[in-house]
């Protein structure tokens, strides 16, 4: 019995090795034959959330393809889509899907595009470590706190759960221009870009970290990387979506739970949008391929959560099909 397992393991690892070698050779070949030839500019703009991943990819890409000038801006998801829709940039970093108004701008200017998932981010719901009463929260309760109707009404913790103390609740969250705000409101309130307005808003998550870490009555949300970097000053609370089919009970955000999609609805995908005219160019194809090959490891390195290998393969396939459809 032991032997069979061992054999199986050897065969399995051998196949893996061969297949990975095959992959390596393939991409290796394209690198050596093309890296000297490929040149051009690739203009990227958009979400400041996705920016660190794209910056990391561009940095490594430059080492392999020094003649391709990749520039990255951070106008925000919305600001980036405005430029994308006018054909001013090749790729837009996005922390949410394209809106219909943005899509119609693209259509009006004859710009085709493809959405590619590049990584995951978890939005952590955090409180001050001095808060002893709140140990978990449900999506319904979060909705009660954040929906527009709560403005001026939901002011104390005991209004959310009667056993919590009758003390003020102080809210912190992303600024309304950010994709993070759009995503959070969509996931919690049910309608994108709609929430109460009487909370401390900042586009800079470090400001929110600062605020929550010094205020015992605070509750806020931001990307998991900001929690990880400030673990000693904050407390993250598990969120219960009240649905049992994707993980029962309150769930903490972690690499695991975001990756296997049990941390819903606050685990979110991050995207890049590629302009179809740009996608027809060799340098952009090479870059996108490079992104989907190395983006997983690099996104972990800068504080995000990689997708599974199959998911990256699927995105690559999707992009290849898209490029093929352009050639026709």
């Amino acid at each position: 019995m032991k032997k069979t397992i061992l054999n199986l393991a050897i065969i399995l690892s051998a196949t893996l090795l061969i297949s990975s070698c095959g992959n390596g050779k393939e991409s290796g070949e394209t690198t050596t034959s093309d890296s000297t030839k490929i040149s051009g500019d690739i203009k990227i703009d958009g979400s400041s959330t996705v920016y660190p991943i794209t910056e990391a990819v561009a940095e490594d890409f430059k080492a392999s393809f020094p003649d391709v000038k990749v520039t990255v801006g951070l106008s925000g998801t919305g600001g980036g889509f405005k430029k994308f829709g006018r054909g001013e940039i090749d790729i837009n970093d996005a922390s949410r899907s394209i809106k219909s108004t943005e899509d119609s701008l693209c259509k009006a200017n004859n710009i085709g595009h493809i959405e590619l998932k590049v990584a995951f981010d978890g939005l952590a719901v955090v409180i001050n470590p001095g808060n002893t009463w709140c140990n978990d929260i449900t999506v319904a309760e979060l909705k009660k706190i954040w929906e527009p109707e709560a403005q001026g009404k939901i002011k104390t913790w005991n209004q959310i759960r009667p056993e919590w103390p009758k003390e003020e609740i102080h809210l912190f969250g992303a600024g309304v221009e950010s994709g993070t705000y759009d995503y959070f409101t969509e996931a919690i309130v049910g309608k994108s870009h709609s929430s109460r307005g009487d909370y401390t808003a900042s586009e800079d998550d470090n400001v929110l970290v600062q605020g929550i870490s010094t205020d015992k009555l605070a509750l806020g949300f931001f990307g998991i990387a900001y929690f990880e970097a400030n673990k000693d000053k904050l407390k993250v609370i598990p969120v219960d979506d009240l649905k049992d089919d994707n993980g029962k009970g309150p769930i903490l955000p972690s690499i695991e739970t975001v990756k296997n999609k049990t941390y819903t609805p606050l685990g979110r995908p991050l995207f890049i949008y590629v302009n179809s005219t740009a996608a027809a160019k060799k340098e952009v194809q090479t870059f996108v391929d490079f992104y989907l090959t190395n983006g997983g490891a690099l996104s972990q390195e800068v504080g995000y959560i990689a997708m599974t290998d199959e998911e990256y393969k699927a995105e690559k396939l999707k992009f290849d099909e898209f490029v093929k459809s352009l050639a026709k």
Partner: peptide, 12 residues
């Protein structure tokens, strides 16, 4: 400058 399109990552 951010509005007119100044970048954050410029490799040259």
């Amino acid at each position: 400058l951010i509005v007119i399109g100044a970048l954050a990552y410029v490799p040259f």
